[in-house]
Design a binder for these strands. Structure first.
Length: 687
DNA sequence: AGCACGCCGACT
DNA sequence: GTCGGCGTGCTC
């Protein structure tokens, strides 16, 4: 660049600043009012996670309002004579219109306004920013989760006129909960009651959710319900339609197709519909004047988003409630440790039934160890402990029987086939697993081969690893109970409902169909497989899965029986027998606190090639008292060794940890550290 | 991420 | 003297 060119450039910039009305590099005519558009560019790079200012051409002045989708040229370089060249077109959103820009250079113009629809509302923008910060992600990544793809035809249709608020609903079955009626009243009164709700077993919870929504709408505010899968969305959808009729709520199910989905999302965004329900993507639904956010069954893994930065429905719901002043209803048959923590800190109040109410509606729960001898021929054939077989046979005279079988491959650590003592490495006490060759045992921690394992407790040489899948269980039980229809519900074909006729219903956890009139009995098989998983949450998760199944069984007074095949002294088994999920969660929380585990501490995982992980760990500036655990070898690398480190900080330092991870990741990329590092706040699987 | 600019070694 | 190494910094 010659001296003349440089002077000209400086003069241009001075000119721009003085006139407070930037010219574009093409010199196009600019908007008279607010000629600067602040834009979030849809490029997920952490180092680009900020706003960029663009000049608003006069012809886009009307349409380029905050919240609209735009196209902008980004990444152009300045060529000879100060001219910009190249630069690719990116999607983005206008977040503000301004009179001036604090950018010292020359602004590029907006290339195009894709649509005048203001989809990124201020509340949604704030939420996405908060979520991005919480999860050490970029705003652009979160926006992709929060704002659905545009569908022009759906957008062209007007949304219907909003209906007036409904009347306050009848309290209905909420009267079974201590303070249940008061909770609904608080919602209708415009307050923000926050509750961890231990729902009673049985088929009434969808209706109870619907009443809470109706109470919120009655008070003139909006409501949001997020459930883990489409089947439960459909049930709450039906309950809402029953209570409110059509037109007051929108179900944002994933299987609707892009047009219908966007049409419904717009009806929420435009304020034409005040209540939204759906699966996890609905956590961002731009419900106006949010008065209540409901999360059902927050322990379900589906509530954790698979896409970066992996926000969790419960956490997003809590952030929204805090930001938007909404009430919270964190409900399920069981209670998560996170729920227990909200109770312990006093952030939320318990919403539960009195002990005698629970006893009146819960089924009778019996425990059986599968070490029980005395199997008769038929029971042996079906691989069932005799009491379980008898319970099924007895119940089949009265109705359908649910049999819950852990998924194949839901394999825990290897254990002695005889006494169930976990098989451990002789050197480091790590868990043994089948090695890469398949036949040889290896320690999953230190890799030492163990060719001659025998049980240290009972001397047996037999190991048990795999559970028998639902399909084979169905075959075997079919033979054990001839003339009884056998139905299966599992991964590939999930039944949502079965009739009240006697039948054996074999299901993997989470796929249990609802039975008309309730199941006469449920058998929860292979409990050891759930309890023995090498996961911090194994106990909590086992109880959740059992209660989900047991909650579909008739009350004890109507003969409803649950038989759980598991070690009777195990804490989750005892909690199931007592039907006390809240107590179980509270005890688990206490234990986690002592071990400095989440959710009391905040954790993050860092996974990738060893060098990349090391680079990140060397760059990160952790707060005082933070721990680095590992790195240790981790699965996931394709053809390459991967490592994973866990970072742990004290309660209250989650935001600092996220910020430090983000900064370190940016620094690592700037230093050309090779390969990717995956950062995950609140990793779901802590061995 | 791309893609520039920028400041030190071996070559026609 | 120049071509080119990849360190550092920017993208409105």
């Amino acid at each position: 660049m010659s001296t003349d060119d440089a002077d000209e450039q400086l003069a241009f910039i001075r000119d721009t600043v003085r006139r407070a009305k930037p010219r574009t590099w093409r010199g196009a005519l600019l908007a008279d009012e607010l000629p600067v558009a602040r834009v979030v560019v849809d490029k997920g790079l952490l180092s680009l996670d900020k706003f960029f200012d663009y000049a608003v051409p006069a012809n886009l002045a009307e349409e380029a309002q905050p919240g609209v989708r735009v196209r902008v040229r980004f990444g152009a370089r300045v060529g000879a004579g100060g001219r910009r060249e190249g630069g690719e077109l990116y999607d983005g959103f206008v977040v503000a219109r301004l009179a001036t820009s604090d950018f010292p250079g020359v602004l590029a113009p907006l290339a195009q306004v894709l649509s005048p629809e203001r989809v990124l509302t201020p509340a949604l923008l704030t939420l996405c920013r908060t979520v991005a910060d919480r999860y050490a992600g970029s705003l652009a990544d979160v926006l992709q989760l929060a704002v659905p793809p545009r569908h022009a035809k759906a957008e062209a249709e007007p949304s219907p006129e909003p209906l007036p608020p409904p009347g306050f609903p009848a309290v209905g079955s909420w009267d079974r909960y201590v303070d249940g009626a008061e909770y609904l009243t608080a919602l209708a009164d415009g307050r923000a009651p926050r509750a961890v709700w231990t729902a009673l077993p049985g088929p009434t919870w969808p209706e109870e959710i619907a009443r809470a929504v109706a109470a919120t709408l009655a008070g003139g505010r909006g409501a949001l319900v997020v459930l883990p899968e489409g089947r439960s969305v459909a049930r709450v959808d039906a309950a809402l339609t029953e209570l409110l009729g059509e037109g007051r709520h929108a179900a944002l199910a994933a299987d609707l197709g892009p047009k219908e989905r966007y049409r419904r999302w717009l009806s929420v965004s435009r304020g034409s519909v005040r209540a939204a329900i759906g699966t996890r993507a609905a956590m961002f639904a731009p419900v106006r004047d949010l008065g209540l956010v409901v999360v059902w069954n927050d322990g379900d893994g589906s509530h954790s988003d698979q896409r970066a930065p992996h926000p969790h429905v419960r956490e997003v719901a809590l952030l929204r409630a805090a930001e938007e002043g909404a009430g919270v209803l964190l409900g399920g048959l069981s209670v998560t440790v996170e729920g227990a923590q909200l109770l312990r800190t006093g952030w939320a109040r318990p919403l539960a039934a009195a002990r005698e109410t629970v006893r009146a509606v819960a089924p009778r729960v019996r425990t059986v160890t599968d070490l029980d001898q005395g199997r008769d021929a038929a029971a042996q054939y079906a691989r069932l402990p005799r009491p379980a077989w008898e319970a099924a046979r007895d119940a089949l005279t009265r109705g359908p029987v649910l049999i819950q079988v852990p998924r194949r491959g839901y394999a825990p650590r290897l254990a002695c086939a005889q006494c169930r003592t976990p098989a451990r490495c002789r050197h480091c006490e790590g868990p043994l697993a089948a090695g890469a060759a398949g036949a040889v045992l290896e320690c999953a921690w230190c890799g030492t081969a163990e060719p001659e394992w025998h049980c240290v407790e009972c001397g047996s040489f037999r190991l048990r690893a795999q559970v028998v899948g639902a399909k084979r269980t169905a075959e075997e039980l079919g033979k054990a109970f001839p003339r009884v229809p056998v139905r299966t519900s599992g991964r590939d074909s999930v039944l949502s409902e079965v009739s009240g006729e006697p039948a054996l219903v074999i299901s993997t956890p989470g796929a249990e169909p609802v039975a008309e009139g309730g199941y006469a009995a449920a058998l929860l098989l292979d409990g050891w497989a759930l309890l023995g998983r090498p996961d911090l949450r194994a106990g909590e998760e086992a109880l959740r899965l059992w209660m989900t199944a047991a909650g579909l069984v008739r009350p004890a007074a109507e003969g409803g029986t649950v038989v759980v095949v598991a070690e009777p002294t195990a804490r989750p088994v005892q909690a199931l027998v007592r039907w006390d999920p809240a107590g179980h969660a509270a005890v688990e929380l206490e234990e986690r606190a002592q071990l400095h585990f989440p959710p009391v501490s905040r954790m993050a995982s860092v996974t990738g090639a060893p060098q990349a992980v090391e680079d990140l760990l060397s760059l990160i500036r952790l707060p005082e008292g933070a721990d680095v655990l590992g790195p240790v070898p981790a699965p996931g690398g394709r053809g390459q060794e991967w490592e994973r480190a866990l970072l742990r900080v004290a309660p209250g330092q989650g935001a600092v940890l996220a910020a430090a991870l983000k900064a370190a990741q940016i620094a690592r990329v700037a230093l050309r550290s090779p390969d990717q590092v995956r950062i995950r706040i609140d990793p779901p699987d802590i061995g």
